[in-house]
């Protein structure tokens, strides 16, 4: 906090009033950070010693060897706890996790950009507002609630679709036992819940575009389509790119509720609903092994970390101000 260091700062942010004012400012601003900092240290950083459990054959704490001394008594097993993530069926779940995420990133992008553009062209703004309000609604619901919504249609005994199929004399589809439908159903659910949110984002960006640019294009004889391609899309590009990269950073993380609650945890659907998060949870409940579940969580963190670092690196190249750190 020496004068010399302050002196190296660019003119426009150099504090007025010299070192003591600078110190005072730093002090007061630091007090603002205290509550959340204490929280982060206690609830996020303190438990991080637990990562060591990924590499141990965890022994239970007892009265004689209480937690966390039991960790010293737990033998080091290296990468053994990670093995189960790479045996047998785990390829399917890795394929599902990455596949769904990739598909939904692309579809979500196309649909919400299209919706946003359509909405910006509506002349009755009241209706546009109403659509927007309705489309935003699913974003606020928990997946458990959504699973009930879906169940009302697909329930094998009372579901509306099932009953109407029977009423029409057709054989009712056994929804919760037929994996073939679920990639579509999950996709619809995911889009249904999230499209409203991203449409709102893109729409706001479009309304921020200076209208005179469109008018100038129109005078030059550009059609509406040409205007969209040459005016709207270029303006949306930075936002699209950043959102895209943010999502890519999360490609190894699945939405647990969607893959667990929405298919009603139905076993025959696992080949298409099994993702990293559900796989780990199921493996934990079937073996009760603390080491394995910590290991899986740690691996996921690690992959996520690499993805985010890459994503952040790209963002920084494109627009330094937008990078996360």
């Amino acid at each position: 906090m020496s004068m010399a260091r302050t002196g190296t700062r660019p003119e426009h942010i150099r504090p007025r009033g010299g070192a003591s004012a600078m110190r005072k400012k730093t002090f007061w601003l630091t007090t603002m950070m205290l509550p959340a900092t204490i929280w982060l240290l206690l609830i996020r950083y303190l438990p991080m010693f637990g990562i060591v459990m990924s590499f141990l054959d965890y022994k239970l704490p007892t009265r004689k060897v209480p937690f966390p001394l039991n960790l010293l008594k737990s033998p080091w097993v290296g990468l053994k706890n990670f093995q189960f993530l790479f045996t047998g069926e785990s390829l399917t779940m890795i394929r599902n996790t990455i596949g769904y995420n990739a598909l939904w990133i692309v579809l979500g992008l196309l649909i919400s950009v299209a919706f946003a553009i359509m909405m910006s062209e509506l002349s009755r703004k009241f209706l546009a507002k109403t659509y927007q309000t309705m489309m935003f609604f699913p974003y606020f619901l928990s997946w458990v609630v959504v699973s009930y919504f879906l169940f009302a249609f697909l329930d094998p005994t009372n579901g509306m679709l099932v009953r109407s199929q029977r009423a029409a004399g057709a054989a009712a589809v056994d929804w919760y036992n037929t994996p073939a439908y679920w990639p579509y159903i999950l996709t619809i659910c995911s889009l249904w819940k999230n499209t409203g949110y991203s449409t709102v984002l893109y729409l706001s960006a479009i309304t921020g575009i200076d209208r005179s640019q469109y008018e100038a294009a129109a005078v030059d004889g550009a059609t509406k389509w040409q205007q969209t391609v040459h005016v709207t899309l270029p303006h949306l590009k930075p936002m699209i790119v950043i959102l895209l990269i943010m999502n890519v950073g999360k490609i190894f993380n699945a939405d647990f509720g969607l893959f667990w609650s929405v298919p009603m945890n139905s076993a025959p659907l696992y080949p298409v609903t099994q993702v990293v998060d559900t796989y780990v949870y199921r493996a934990y409940t079937s073996t009760g092994n603390v080491g394995m579940s910590t290991a899986a969580g740690f691996l996921q963190n690690l992959v996520g970390f690499i993805c985010i670092m890459i994503a952040n690196g790209i963002v920084r190249k494109l627009d330094a101000d937008s990078s996360l750190f």
């Binding site: 982060l40 206690l42 609830i43 996020r44 950083y45 303190l46 438990p47 991080m48 010693f49 637990g50 990562i51 459990m53 937690f67 966390p68 603390v290 579940s293 910590t294 969580g297 740690f298 963190n301 996520g304 970390f305 985010i308």
Partner: peptide, 15 residues
């Protein structure tokens, strides 16, 4: 902390 966490058991003990 957005990326790394200690996992369920240690967090549980601290809390």
């Amino acid at each position: 902390t957005m990326i790394f966490g200690g996992g369920l058991i240690p967090t549980y003990i601290v809390c």
